[in-house]
Design a protein around this nucleic acid. Structure first.
Length: 579
RNA sequence: GAUUAUGUAGCUCAGCUGGUAGAGCACAUCCCUUUUAAGGAUGGGGUCCUGGGUUCGAAUCCCAGCAUGAUCACCA
């Protein structure tokens, strides 16, 4: 059945879109299905041809390849088309008499030249050769339309590595990532690298015999990190659920249950600000290994991340912005107090809360009463040290107050066995010797509750079931959380987290105010509703207030301007709608 | 959340001190008929983000809003 692609919705379409819909209809009239169902078997990729053909010109004499038309140069009876597939681009040479049967030139002159466009997806058969200009090309013998494109692509041109008219508006790139990937295929590499990164990590952990597991994203109590959660509601249980901010407490329950090593790549959700380092949902890999401690875990992190760098770049050195970062083992190790002393000259290791407030003010940290001793130390560190740590560095031995899930240091009073790896001025992972003393854990939760009462919105809540699990006994365990997005940013030299997420969170696009129902209720035919909206009237009340004579002129004017095949409006009908 | 910049054709961008809206690419028609960011000629295409205000007159000036970026705050 013939579909009407050119209905009154075309009022919202640009001229180019209308042309393409007309082409679509004409294709159908010529018996060509613009969206065929049958498979199109491809036997080669563009890059294979470009790599291998120069070495052996006898190759690729019968290729079948498919992709998207990215540009066209039509020279009468011969044309050149740039075809883009998943891995690259190649030029097609299309000659009228090769793709047409006998004297009938319709397929070339009409179908190819007039009815196909940049953006259409086609499949071709032919042989590879080199043009007079020296470009490896496919001489096309058969051409088939596989999918008609109805929207014009942004045209990005490139010569000698310089992009002309690059499609670069971040808003459009992130909102319409598909479009970004089509016209800026260089960004595909970032996402491919991200996947290699994850695969490398997964393989590494699997080879060590750790078990990849899944734990709940919807949690009745959120825990395992200091952050504000997203809140949701379960209807049939009639209860509040939170989206997880971390999966730590669940994975440790599994260690209690007797697994030696468990890990999870987990999407976590934190209801906090957004900027180039933070997206509301992000990915962490958390790993827990029984009978290990944080020293052991540092070695693992070094080895794993060095592996990733080697796998992605073939070297441990990675260029990130202006810095060359070297992930070669061993990394520098500082205790937190050493780092602060190193960068400020101040030894805060023995200070009380009042003294710490003084130091915090001195180095430019804003202090508020909800801050405990641990928070103060962390803020001082964040202000004075973190941005200066460019090469991968382990910071160890954190104050107990800010690490309620970490085991007390085996020899240093007031500290816990915890480390973070900092790289390019940002934390990339966090790890401790996990606290497995249930009595101590209960006290830590209770002091978190105290912080909550002081106004710290990120303080942790007490999880009775987790405590019950610890009371059954958890082996000494080393735990790790590593930020996949942050690591991907570093490994792909991306300046923003949005560049390593296919679909970063965005505010909703402004939607067109449409009150079709109101108009329909007034008995107005759909084709006129679109014109009324076009005339700037968006609801029934506005229609009532409009001047009937002016609107009458406007509407029939729009009908004429858009060459609509509907009967002219008469004033009586319009007045009926408006009454 | 604060400060600031930006928002004009499908895309990339001009548009001065307020006076009928511009270019390149893309698109259409014709000519050419092995080109390469690009052949030539002609032409069509705009809610100048939205809503107010000032003004005889606003893309332009003012206010508010929306979206996006940057910086800061928040984010162990």
């Amino acid at each position: 059945m013939q579909k009407n692609y050119l209905n009154c919705m075309s009022l919202d379409l640009s001229e180019q879109e209308i042309f393409r819909r007309k082409s679509l209809e004409e294709l159908q009239n010529l018996g060509i299905n613009p969206y065929p169902a049958d498979l199109f078997e491809v036997n080669v990729k563009t890059t294979d041809i470009l790599t291998n053909f120069p070495n052996d010109n006898s190759l690729y004499q019968e290729v079948t390849i498919a992709g998207r038309i990215m540009s066209r140069r039509i020279m009468g009876a011969a044309s050149f088309v740039e075809l883009q597939d998943s891995v690259g681009k190649i030029q097609l040479y299309i000659k009228r008499d090769d793709i047409c049967e006998g004297e009938d030139t319709t397929f070339y002159n009409t179908v190819f030249k007039k009815l196909m466009d940049i953006g259409d997806i086609i499949g071709v058969k032919g042989f590879v050769f080199i043009t007079q200009m020296g470009e490896i090309s496919i001489h096309v013998k058969e051409l088939k339309l596989l999918s008609k494109s109805l929207k014009p692509l942004p045209i990005v041109k490139e010569k000698d590595g310089i992009l002309y008219d690059a499609f670069s508006d971040p808003e459009q790139r992130y909102r319409q990532r598909y479009l970004d990937l089509i016209v800026n295929p260089q960004y595909k590499d970032t996402f491919i690298k991200r996947t290699i990164l994850v695969n490398t990590m997964r393989n590494y952990l699997n080879e060590k015999g750790y078990l990849e597991v899944e734990t709940p994203i919807l949690q009745p109590l959120y825990g395992g990190a200091a952050a504000r959660p997203f809140k949701t509601h379960h209807n049939s249980l009639g209860m509040t659920l939170y989206m997880r901010i971390a999966n730590e407490l669940y994975l440790k329950r599994l260690i209690v249950g007797g697994f030696d090593g468990v890990y999870e790549f987990s999407k976590d959700f934190r209801n906090e600000g957004m900027d180039r380092f933070h997206n509301p949902e992000f990915t962490q890999m958390e790993l827990y290994v029984a009978y290990k401690d944080y020293d052991w875990m540092m070695d693992l992190v070094e080895e794993m991340v060095e592996n990733i760098a080697l796998n992605l770049h073939g070297t441990t050195k990675v260029q990130v912005g202006e810095n060359e970062i070297d992930f070669k083992r061993p990394w520098k190790r500082f205790t937190m107090f050493e780092a602060i002393q190193h960068y400020t000259g101040i030894d805060i290791s023995a200070m009380n809360e009042e003294q710490l407030v003084e130091v915090a003010k001195k180095v430019g940290v804003e202090v508020d009463p909800s801050m405990g001793k641990g928070k103060l130390i962390d803020e001082i560190f964040g202000e004075t040290c973190e941005p200066k740590l460019i090469q991968p560095t382990f910071i160890t031995d954190y104050p107990v107050e800010m690490s309620p899930l970490a085991k007390k240091h085996r020899s240093k009073e007031g500290l816990v066995e915890r480390f973070e790896a900092v790289c390019n001025g940002k934390e990339i992972c966090n790890s401790f010797s996990e606290l497995n003393d249930p009595i101590d854990q209960r006290q830590r939760f209770e002091s978190q509750l105290e912080l909550g009462k002081r106004g710290d919105e990120e303080s942790m809540v007490l999880d009775e079931d987790f405590l019950r699990a610890l009371e059954f006994g958890m082996p000494p365990t080393a735990g790790l959380g590593i930020g996949i997005d942050r690591l991907a940013m570093i490994m792909t030299n991306s300046n923003s987290i949005q560049d390593v997420l296919f679909f970063p969170q965005m505010r909703p696009e402004k939607k067109v105010v449409a009150n079709d129902d109101e108009f329909i209720a007034l008995g107005i035919p759909i084709e006129w509703i679109n014109l009324i909206k076009k005339a700037g009237i968006t609801n029934a009340a506005a229609l009532k207030d409009a001047n009937p004579n002016k609107l009458f002129n406007d509407l029939n004017g729009l009908r004429k301007k858009n060459k609509l095949d509907i009967p002219a409006l008469n004033l009586e009908d319009l007045k009926k709608w408006m009454s």
